[in-house]
Every structure is written in C-alpha cells, then in structure tokens.
Write a protein that binds this DNA or RNA. Structure first.
Lengths: 407, 407
DNA sequence: CGAAAATGTATGAGACGGCTACAAATCAAG
DNA sequence: CTTGATTTGTAGCCGTCTCATACATTTTCG
C-alpha cells in the first residue's frame, strides 16, 4: 500500500484504518514517513526540507531522502525560493508543495439529490453542480439515476480524473458494499461505488458523508492541522465526523448515529422508533413543527435562514423558536464534549444560514450546559465554505487515499 | 522508549498516546514490533514463534529475531513443548510466554479509601487490601494519608516491585500533575504520583480509574484480545474506559465525563450543576431517592444487591425500582452504542451485585432502546473479578507501560 | 571581502525485516 | 525399523531506511 504507485484500472476503496495487527516492516517505514511528510505539508502549507525536519524531529538528510522520492514520483514539486520562508539569513529555502497531478472527482449522495464536483488537489473547486434525482424505488434505480447525473456533469470534463471521492450517508463494509443507511432507504445493496468506478474509469474512494465533511475541513478548511475536532451536519438529520488524536472515529460494528443519542429519555417519538433522540429536538422536522405551534408563516418549509430573518424583523415568536433551537442543538454538542472532550465543533448544513447571532446564542447555551468543574468550553464555529463543503469533503476522501495518508 | 530497558530510579509516567507526529525510524520499528508481539501473547495466551508469525503475517525468521531479543532481555521465556500447542504432527513448538520479572504494585484511589495490591505479571493477585482514609481537607493531607496507607500494605512485601500502577478519578497532564477531579475535590494539585514513586522506589504509572478498569479487562479479563469495548463503572458516579480499534480513548482537553451526558434535557438537577445527567438517573444517589419514594426499608443505604434480594423475595415495589434502574442504565449504554458503535460493555461496581436477572432486564431495555435500523445490539456483561478488578486495572496500567505497549 | 548562518547533499554505518535454504523433531505408513 | 511427510526454528545474505557527520552552496551582515 504505497502512497504513490497508482494501480491501473478502476476499483473501489472503502476508506478505513489499515488493520494494525501485523508487524511493521522496514518498507512500511518508508511509506509511513512519506505519508507523514505529506500530512505535515497539508497541515502547515509549503515547507522547506529544513522546516519539515524541525517539525518531525529528524535530520535534514532523512527528509531529503523522503522528499527525493516524492519529487521524482511527481507528488511534490519545489516552489520558488522565498515563498513562505521567513528566514532572512542563510541559504534560501526551497519550499515543497503538492504538484498538480490532475483533478479529483467528488460525488456527494444525499436524499433526492446528487452533488457532483471537480476539485484540484489544493482544494480549488472548478465544477460544482447539484442534480435532483427522480423518485426511485430500488437500489438499482438509485444507482442508475446517480450514475446518470454524474455522467452529465463530468462528461464535458477534458482532463482525466485521478480519483473520485464518493460521500454517502451509510455504513459500508471493507469492500465498499453498502450495508445500512438510516437516511436513504433504497441505499443498502447499492452497487454505486463499483458503477462509478466503471463510469469514470478511476478509483472510487468511499466515505461516510459526515466523516467526509470532517476530512474536507481537515485538508482544506478550518481544521487544517487540527488533530481533535468534530464536523457536525445539522439539517433534516444530524451526523457527525469526529477526529480524535488525528484519527477519524469509525465504529467497528454499525454506523455512528449521533443524531439518535437520547437527550430526553421519555421525549417524543423519533422516526427511528425510539424516544427523545437529539434529532427529535434539533432537526428541521422539529423546526417545522415548532414553527407551526408558534404560528409562524409557512411553518412546513421553515429554514434556519427564514427563521433568523423573521427574528431579525422583531418577531418575538420567531426569536423564541430560534432560541429553543439553539438550546436543543447545544444539548448534543455538550454531550459530545462531555463524553469525548472534543475541543472544536464545526457546524455544517442549513443551520449555518442562521448566522452569527444564532451562533452566539448557541455558544451561550453550550456554556450554560457544560459542567463548570471542567473549567473548559469547546470552540464552536460554522462552516465557511457553505455550498462547497460537500464536494470538498468527497475530494478530501479521495486525496486521503491517493496520498496514502491514514486518517 | 524501548519496551525493555528499565530506567533506574523512581519516576512518574502518565499513560497516554505517544505523540504521533514525527517520523518513524528503523529502531522504532524494532520496539514497535516487540510491543506487538507482546500484545499478541497477552491477547491469545502462550504462542509459538510459528503461531506468532501466522498471527502477524510475517515470516518465522522475523519473529525469531524479535523473540531472540525479548528472550535475552528476560521479558519472555520458553514453556515446555506441548503446552498449549494443538498440532499433532511435525516438530513440537516451544511456546513463548512472559517471564516473571517480579510483582507489580497496584494502587487505586477512591473517595475515602485506597485500595492497594500486588499483582504478578500474569494477573494473579497476591495482596489486596482496602484502607479507609481519614477525612482530609487538602491535597497535601490526602497525599500523606494515601502514602501512609500504601506503606502499611506494601511494607511487609519482600520482593521489590518492578513498577506501580496508580489509578485515580481525575484528569492529569503529561507529567502526572493532577488537574481536575469531579469525584475527589481535594485531588487537584496532589503530588501523590511523585510521592508514591519516592515511597516505593520505582516507576509509578498513572492512569484514570475508568480507563485502568478497561486496561485490566484487556490484559487479564473478558476483553483479552478485544479491540473494541467499554468498561463501565457504575456506582456513586459513572465512569467509562472506552477502547476503540485497540486504543483507549483519551480526551485531548478535559476528562471524559460519560456520567454527565444529558439524557433528560429538563430533568433533575445533578450535583455537577447541570440537568438530567445520566448520573441523576443511574447512580446510587438515584437509587436511594427512588427507594425512599417506593417505601423500601433503609432507602438511604440501598444497594443493588439489597434491592435484588428484596425483589427476589417478591416485593413488587423493589422489583419496579430495579426495573427502572435497568432502564436508566440502559439509556447511557444505548447512547454510547449509537454514537460510538461499541460492541461490548463490561459493567463494574456495585451494580454487578444485582445479579444475572438484572442483567437480563438491562439487556432487554437496551434492545428496546436501540435503533432497529442498525440490526445490531451490543453485548453486555458483568465484571467477573469483582473485588480484584480495581487492582488488576492499576497493575494493567503499569504493565502496559512496562512492556512499551501503546494502548 | 570575509565570517556567520542556514540549506541541501553525499557517504558510510547500523538496525531491521524479507527471503531462501537447511537442520531438527515428531508422526504415520509400510 | 525405516522412510517420507510435516512442522518448527535458525543461519546467511540482501534491500531499505534512518542516523551521524562532513561538506558544498548561498545568502546576510559587519
């Protein structure tokens, strides 16, 4: 599993930790160190060999060897001297940075819609399009519609893609077979990864949608260089991609369902069949019902954005609903903070459009709900990339595999 | 940080993940592989070189080299041929097993009591004693009382200890300074680790109490060879040691407080200042109050054991309380299962004395509360070692460090 | 112009696992 | 009892990789 030798032919890769059983070999040292160097670059931006040596605690000579390999393989290239270097004296450094090896495909499957994009390896998004899917009745129909949508968007692309990232809301096995999805009920049994590999002619890298969001933030967003954080997707449902100590949490048995953590043990019935799930209090479904109770206009299509606009115009009922929403969202965040001690939460989804005032209220609720004995609070921010985060996440999944980085 | 060269002189080690930044070196390969071999032995029992080679996917020659080093260093020794070997044909194997390098000390600090023990490296407990502590007013007084208790118990021991494991309910820094404790308010600022090192003359390995329980199960208990499970301590408070993918979860910022996960968002006030924490519904405090409401005798000292005995005599009120208790304990377990997909929970503490019928009820509650869409349930068992689990956990922490295993 | 400082490289040494062949020990069949 | 099959553990050689050290190169400062 070297970081750099691309295998010919399309295939499917399910992102996941390598089995850590088994012993290290000397060649494994090489590929691991290559991956660590690439990770350091992604975390800190262009770095010279000397900088990399300081960061990783090895001699310049060792970095020189690693870098030589990556340069000849075309993974890295040297920037102009002076770029990013802060030193004034001495021989100027030659910073290393990722060479552009071609565009990455990004496919994000959501209920009723497929988002398709093309992303450069430095995170620039050149294509991004959402394609609505027709109603489908089976996994096969879903696959056909999704592949069709991807073809339509990626068809005009000239350059061949070097890899395709596929983010979808489901739990999959090591070979990319989709086992469970609590969001899209036609998804289990889908052969979409393999079909996409065939359609695009390249490797398809499969990842859970929430974890992909986290990867996107880690490679291209606010979590660059951050080893502990969570990406929270809050919309119709709630999902989380959680990175602890530089590793994405991946449950061993079933999907991670933070949205169905009980926060109100004899609360309302959730669509999952249980009572008082976080989703029953913090999803758009709750927002609709609560808006209706509050007599707000068009409650059945209420969004965080409209609710904020109503509150900003001075509607006290809207302001109250918004505050309740903040309090409910805070519940789950505080639970995750208490249990996992996650220091940074990045919010994604429609909730972002509730804006900075909502965020302030959310922070207050979180502060009020957090145990004071801990003497600490998590940082909470909102996704800055808005519509691009989905494709960035899928692309990040692809690049993670492509560079052999283990996250 | 080799697995085997003991540094002279007492010192304090806070168990924790090595910083994974930095590159691998060839010598690191050696120590990592030594640790992996030791881990495999601990997981599977005595194994021959050939068995180890099969488990780890390397050649017998490579294992031979690793084993040679561990044998000459006295970490391992060879058992008689035939022990544990199942093969009938061929040259008989010489199984490898841990050499007895001396006893481990184990100290478990709890509110008002110190548990002190001596444990052999194969998990046999030769000494175990609980010493009540006098009321203390400061960290210094606590330290003095605890060191005194340890001296009293370990004084008569002849053999020198090769390491001492110290388990305590608190969050500590990398140098063993104790920062936060939600259980013992005189603990922050304690210098107990350093004082113990001075008193015993050996290395003191520091670990959180719940995580130590998990380590004990991993090395000596029901989680031998299991890479994903949680040890739950349920008594006056609730703590959890969670192992995922072979690594103990360690929050980066503050202590992990599963007991203060909100399960009832406008529930009763918890002693932590928040509302509806799991502890308000599943701790002994709740048991006392609920027993009082139900009119049970001596409610203020009610224990799971007495409650079970009452229920077994046919007291319907006791049976109802017990069932509520099971339902409340299930809440947190289900949350952890939904969020982290933990497939195995091992229960510790007074709750174990509620017996197998209670466990069955608990399992039913968990099954009822778990999302059916996941098509999976966690396994729930009870600690089999009862009173020995505490010292086994502390000893496991010591052995983990002593063997250089990273958990 | 020369010293100082910093970067990148060349070279040899040491550690370590992989591979292959081989000796050793046991059982089963004749 | 002998022979072959089977399995275990080991010896020797090789390739890979980092480490330590010295050195060439390029810039700044006095």
């Amino acid at each position: 599993m070297t970081a750099t030798a691309p295998r010919p032919g399309p295939r499917v890769v399910a992102l996941g930790p390598r089995p850590e059983t088994g012993l290290l070999s000397t060649t494994a040292v090489g590929s691991t160190n290559r991956a660590r160097v690439l990770q350091a670059l992604a975390d800190h931006g262009p770095l010279s060999r000397a900088d990399l040596a300081r960061h990783s605690g090895v001699t310049r000579a060792s970095i020189g060897g690693v870098a030589a390999g990556l340069l000849t393989e075309g993974v890295l290239h040297e920037l102009e001297s002076g770029t990013g270097g802060s030193r004034r004296i001495g021989k100027p450094s030659r910073p290393l940075w990722f060479a552009d090896r071609g565009p990455l495909g990004a496919v994000v499957l959501q209920p009723g819609v497929v988002e398709v994009g093309v992303v450069a390896s430095d995170g620039r998004v050149s294509v991004r399009e959402s394609v609505a899917l027709p109603p489908v009745r089976s996994a096969a129909e879903l696959d056909a519609a999704a592949v069709d949508a991807v073809r339509t968007v990626l068809g005009p692309t000239r350059q061949p893609l070097i890899a395709v990232g596929l983010a979808l809301p489901g739990f999959f096995g090591p070979d990319g077979e989709i086992l469970v999805s609590t969001t899209i009920d036609t998804l289990p049994g889908s052969r979409l990864p393999a079909l996409l590999a065939a359609a695009t002619g390249t490797t398809v890298v499969l990842e859970d949608d929430a974890r992909a969001l986290a990867l996107g933030q880690r490679w291209f967003g606010q979590a660059r260089g951050v080893r502990d954080f969570a990406a929270l997707q809050i919309g119709a449902g709630i999902g989380a991609g959680i990175m602890l100590d530089g590793r994405l949490l991946r449950g061993p048995l079933v999907a991670s369902e933070v949205g169905h953590m009980t926060v109100d043990h004899d609360g309302e019935l959730c669509r999952c069949g249980q009572r008082g799930c976080w989703e029953t209090l913090a999803s758009s479904r709750w927002l609709h019902r609560r808006s209706e109770q509050a007599g707000l206009p068009e409650p059945e299509t209420m969004t965080p954005r409209r609710l904020t606009e109503l509150a900003d115009t001075g509607d006290p009922a809207a302001a109250e609903v918004l505050d309740d929403y903040a309090g409910h969202v805070a519940l789950g965040i505080v639970n995750l903070f208490h249990v996992l001690s996650i220091p940074l939460f990045i919010l994604h989804g429609p909730i972002v459009e509730a804006g900075p005032r909502f965020l302030d209220r959310l922070r207050e609720h979180v502060a009020a709900r957090t145990m004071s004995a801990l003497n600490a609070l998590p940082t909470i921010t909102m996704d800055e990339n808005a519509t691009r985060s989905g494709v960035l996440g899928a692309a990040a999944a692809a690049i993670t595999h492509q560079l052999g980085v283990s996250l």
